[in-house]
Every structure is written in C-alpha cells, then in structure tokens.
Amino acid sequence: MTRLDAILAEGDPPARDPAFTLRVLEAAARDAARRSVRRRTLRALLWSAAAALSLLVLTAPAQGSGDVLLIAGGTLVAAVGFARLARRAEGFP
C-alpha cells in the first residue's frame, strides 16, 4: 500500500453510529413538523382570505366602499395574527 492509499483510507466514521442515525431521524421529525405547520398556516390564510372575500361580496351592496375595505382588511390582519400565534404555539419564532 502506498502512502497515498494509506492517507485516503483513513478518516472513515465507525460502521455503526446510532447517535448519527438518531440525529438524522430527529432532524427529519423536526422538518416534518415544520412543514406541517407551514401547510396549516397556509391553509388558515387561504380560508381567511376566502372569508374576507365572502364578506366583501356580502356587504358590498349594503355598505360604503370604505367600510367594505375596513372589514376585509381587518379580517386579513386577524388571519395573519392567528397564523402567527399558531406557529408560535408550535414552537416556531
């Protein structure tokens, strides 16, 4: 074996390393949780946007355009706030 072969053959981690496997699985679980929260946040935002749009359509004939915009804007702001609260409750900043 040449010196080059000896150097290149060094540095392998152990054949069995449960700590590394556990680290990967924990990271995978965290990643899955993060994606699930992201999906739920997006779904909440979509529902809120749909609700805001419905309110807009329902109240448009009865009220002035300023009130309609206020209602729609307020609903969207509330939706974003709830989504942020939901994320924080899951442990995300």
Binding site: G11, D12, P13, A15, D17, T21, A28
Partner: peptide
C-alpha cells in the same frame, strides 16, 4: 421511519466518509 433508519445506519459510513474527504472538516461533513 424505522426502514429509513436502517438505510441511514447502513450507508452513513460511506456518505460521511466521502463528505469528510471532500470538504475536509469532520463537523462540516457530518
């Protein structure tokens, strides 16, 4: 996840060994 854990356990040495040689530092490679 148990099946995936078996795959990680079986191949971590090759993947980490390759990346250690490729990037140098063990912590970065891991």
């Amino acid at each position: 996840t148990r099946a995936f854990a078996f795959l990680v356990e079986a191949h971590q040495q090759a993947v980490r060994g390759f990346l250690r040689r490729l990037v140098g530092g063990h912590a970065d490679a891991d």
